[in-house]
Design a protein around this nucleic acid. Structure first.
Lengths: 133, 133, 133, 133
DNA sequence: GTGGTCTAGACCACT
DNA sequence: GTGGTCTAGACCACG
């Protein structure tokens, strides 16, 4: 797993791990049922304390992104197991509102923003396809 | 100024203030050159520690959103004074990437997301127009 | 023996086996003196490591629920052989206290809870009768 | 707050803290809006590491039992804020099933069990009343 | 002073 | 070997 942590960023290390794992799954580089590196392995790979990685894994499990089986390891959850409640949708919507406001500050037009989204979706899909080859 | 703070949210109080001020400006409810309430006034209005409001104002000034003039007060900055460096653009782009990933997890399609953006821009513009009447 | 294991549950696999064996006995589906499948057989049936099944059997024997006779196999113990010391009673009582507290949090009234117990006892008895036919 | 921890119990320390806080709230000894001791205070009171207490508090917040406000402290949540989803009800029901099975093993009759429940509810209410005096 | 994050290192239960 | 729990002690952001 290619995970890169920026220890100087203000976003917590465990959140950075969460984001990148989610990204790998969204891109299809990690597939359902696939085993993730063990807490200790990943911790030594990215030079983090095992507790920090463990915290990231536990949060991801709570989000239904991964599943951990005691004594065996942690695995990517089935897509069907993912949770999507109303609160999350609202949060997403609120994030988007903030983003739109910031964008207007930066002088970014609606067309430009939708173009960006188009590109991001392409990137996700593209990397997944490359992986599938 | 209509600002509502949620003390139980996990986002810092001063950031909530910043977001809402930015929102009011983006909507055109606060216009360039308009005076903002003093730190004390705003603090007592929304029942917050003046230090917290002060921190929000300072951060907003650092971003070039507002300007404080000694002995006169704080005012909404001219749109031309806003700073938009490359770092901010990158951050915006990264936020959007995260949002797209989260959206795919929530099963939201590209079309739906662009539709949302359309709506958010309409909301901004709409409230601004209403205010301009 | 119809035993279903959920490897993703947080309760240990061996405890799940224990619970289900106890349930089968409580329902009268397994009767005193009846032979249980061998560790190997049960392990292959429910796709578990034999060590895990073995641990469950050992624990059940420690509780006096089953007995293993060297060279013959393991059998359901006589009801008279079951051990019920004071510690277990206290534990039971404590579990019930926790359950009552959780129930009040869930807004469940006393009458509802006693009704539930009524139903659980009926279920136990009912399945036993069906099996006795 | 009178919290007693048993370091030799097999149930995790942080769960013991959770249970006892819930108990105090259920009994009405801690009321809605009331402030809990700080993480450090409680930790030194019951001779635990602050991290352990913090973990308990965070879990309790996730359950909607308490609310923490950054920089101010943690408080008992409003009863209306408590979450009660279907999964929790199912879990409760399953716990009760196990309890009934264990009870039959211990030779406890239905009437006895319902009597116990009656007593537990009385205890909860009783301590609350005593506190209200 | 409050809680949140992180590290280092230890022990335990489960498979 | 796996993850889960716990301690000790440090630093930081928030109010």
């Amino acid at each position: 797993m290619f995970i890169r942590i920026n220890p100087r960023s203000s976003t917590p290390l465990y959140e950075q791990v969460m984001e990148q794992v989610k990204e790998l799954i969204a891109k299809g580089i990690l597939e359902s049922g696939e085993q993730l590196p063990s807490v200790r392995d990943l911790a030594s790979q990215i030079v983090l304390n095992p507790n920090t990685v463990s915290k990231a894994y536990k949060e991801l499990e709570r989000n239904g992104v991964i599943v951990t089986i005691r004594g065996k390891g942690t695995f990517v959850a089935d897509a069907s197991d993912r949770k999507l409640d109303l609160k999350q949708l609202e949060q997403l919507r609120q994030q988007l509102q903030r983003l739109v406001i910031e964008a207007t500050y930066a002088g970014i037009k609606k067309e430009e923003l939708t173009q960006w989204i188009e590109e991001e979706f392409q990137t996700l899909k593209g990397e997944g396809d490359r992986n599938a080859d």
